[in-house]
């Protein structure tokens, strides 16, 4: 019997694809965000409000994951941006291969911002790197304020926690300060924004966070391009090349539900 030390990630194939996506997104300065929450905490509505509030010229694309139906993609398509539904057909999370596959043929060089709405689940999506710049966890006040303690993995990995549906606070026993404390016990540096997509409270702060994060990504891409004595080659040019490599039948326009 011979024991060999491996020390390799179990999800090495997923991580390889995610690293390719991240490299391409970083080179072109596009910001990719992975939204994770329980079902029903308001991911899709937050994205709807985001699409509504972003300047009309923002070049963004949305991938939205669900086990079944293209309901979310249909809701999000109303804002005039390219949207694709990823139906996992039973899988409880998105993985990097699903993201890469659903980016195929997209006119990615027009994209500055890629928003990925994961399947509603606080557990499984935690393990899967999608090549995103940041995971954002959404916790609504109709859930328990101890969720950060019950599901520490996602709260530890998320850069930002959005406490959503705060307009319902008078009607539920959710303690906002306790939720914040619990999140910071798990992840002391986590950023927190409180929002209501119904009243619009906190959405300005969310948009400023998004704008600052996108600016930071562009600055990082420019610095990397300077270091490498090369230009990024246009929005997402490298990602487009990589995705086209994977494309069997190239589709030129994706502003539709596949």
């Amino acid at each position: 019997m011979n024991r060999v030390v491996i020390e390799k990630s179990i999800l090495s194939e997923n991580n390889r694809i995610a690293a390719e996506l991240r490299e391409a997104l970083t080179a072109s300065g596009a910001l990719a965000l992975n939204f994770i929450s329980s079902p029903g905490s308001g991911k899709t509505m937050l994205l709807e409000k985001t699409l509504e509030l972003l300047p009309a010229h923002t070049r963004l694309a949305v991938l939205t994951g669900d086990i079944q139906t293209d309901n979310d993609a249909r809701r999000l398509l109303r804002y005039g941006h390219p949207v694709r539904q990823i139906c996992t057909g039973g899988a409880c999370h998105l993985d990097a291969a699903m993201v890469a596959k659903h980016l195929e043929g997209w006119l990615l060089k027009v994209v500055q911002l890629l928003l990925i709405e994961n399947v509603g689940n606080l557990v499984c999506p935690t393990s899967y790197d999608l090549g995103e710049d940041a995971k954002i966890v959404i916790l609504s006040v109709t859930e328990g304020d101890d969720k950060p303690l019950k599901y520490p993995g996602i709260f530890r990995k998320a850069e930002l926690m959005i406490l959503n549906k705060i307009d319902l606070l008078p009607h539920v026993p959710f303690q906002l300060e306790l939720a914040r404390e619990n999140a910071r016990r798990i992840h002391p540096e986590i950023e927190i924004i409180e929002t209501s997509c119904t009243t619009g409270a906190g959405l300005g702060q969310w948009m400023r966070w998004l704008e600052a994060r996108a600016a930071k990504k562009v600055a990082a891409a420019s610095a990397a391009a300077t270091r490498n004595h090369s230009q990024p080659g246009g929005w997402n040019a490298q990602l487009e090349v990589q995705c086209q490599r994977r494309t069997r039948q190239s589709r030129l326009h994706a502003a539709s539900v596949d």
Partner: peptide
């Protein structure tokens, strides 16, 4: 860190 998700080792027989 508590974020390990690794294959640590493999044992082989000839």
């Amino acid at each position: 860190r508590g974020d390990e998700l690794q294959i640590a080792y493999l044992e082989f027989e000839e």
